[in-house]
């Protein structure tokens, strides 16, 4: 810990020396969706690229004809209008039928993927996710682990209107939390998503999961991170939920199965212990609402 803190302060000092522009990682290369770290997110990515290239091909064709017309049929170049060209059943049939075929070709893989996404059977771990104004609550239903997850202090200090802190100097500005969601790799994790006050939406792009957190209703979603991809994955609330909607990020800490087991056991024990003395000390007190 000491070493990490030293390194962080060193990085900060360096950043201050170089100036914010030198420190800030360039964002020019961020042009597209990323394939993510689950099989499903890669399938979605491929679907996205498929539609994208189909659109590009149609665009090249249609814009090509338009631009050709703009160049070729100019009055200033002496073009004379062919006023008889007002209708052509064959051509009109062709440009109705071909798009139908293209749409069917796109709809089939899309429907297949959707069916797979909706299959929440055979899940191995269930976590209840509750969005609230403004943060997330995670409840490991089978392990007795519950905790809240908020925007971390560094980002929160820097994002205030009167703050003098340069966001570029903050580690993962607005994408860091105090307590990340911890899950194991290679495990089909089911999320039961709901909202406490207004509607939120739990979104982690690298998993291809976005699902609304609606008060009074429980939505399901699932993901299974590749075995070789432990790490930190970040997302944000994706449904306008009030003043601090922009400030309720999601961080998922994906660990190896062994690491996860150790963590969840330790966490469960700690929470049990934290709860126990309170119960013992005040046996007569009614349970808190």
């Amino acid at each position: 810990m000491m070493i990490r803190a030293r390194l962080a302060s060193l990085a900060l000092a360096l950043a201050a020396a170089c100036g914010p522009t030198a420190h800030a990682a360039s964002g020019w290369h961020l042009l597209n969706m990323t394939p993510g770290v689950t099989e499903m997110s890669r399938t979605i990515y491929e679907l996205h690229m498929l539609i994208f290239w189909v659109c590009v091909a149609i665009a090249v064709l249609v814009f090509g004809v338009m631009i050709y017309s703009l160049v070729k049929f100019r009055k200033s170049k002496g073009a004379v209008a062919d006023v008889t060209l007002v209708h052509n059943t064959q051509v009109e049939l062709v440009w109705t039928v071909i798009p139908v075929a293209i749409l069917v070709a796109m709809a089939v893989p899309a429907a297949r993927t959707l069916v797979a996404i909706e299959d929440t059977s055979k899940t191995e771990l269930t976590i209840k996710v509750t969005g609230f104004q403004w943060g997330w609550e995670y409840d490991y239903l089978d392990d007795g682990v519950t905790y809240f997850s908020h925007l971390d202090h560094a980002s929160n200090a820097a994002r205030q209107l009167d703050s003098t802190i340069d966001p570029n100097t903050v580690d993962n500005y607005l994408l860091n939390v105090d307590h990340p969601l911890v899950v194991p790799v290679g495990t089909k994790v089911r999320l039961l998503i709901t909202g406490a006050d207004v509607i939120h939406s739990w979104w982690v792009p690298a998993f291809g999961v976005k699902k609304d957190a609606i008060p009074g209703f429980v939505n399901e979603a699932w993901f299974k991170v590749d075995t070789d991809k432990p790490g930190l994955y970040r997302g944000q609330c994706a449904e306008l939920c009030g003043r601090d909607h922009g400030f309720m990020p999601i961080v998922v800490d994906v660990r190896t199965k062994a690491d996860y087991e150790t963590w969840v056991k330790a966490e469960a024990a700690a929470q049990k212990q934290a709860a126990a003395p309170a119960d013992a000390a005040a046996p007569a007190a009614p349970s808190a609402p």
Binding site: G27, H245, G246
Partner: peptide, 22 residues
């Protein structure tokens, strides 16, 4: 388009620094 695909939600008053350029 780029910002959305790279993961920037809409209706937020502030954003992560990698979205600065666009």
């Amino acid at each position: 388009h780029f910002l959305g695909l790279a993961g920037m939600p809409r209706r937020i008053p502030d954003y992560a620094v990698q979205f600065t350029d666009w």
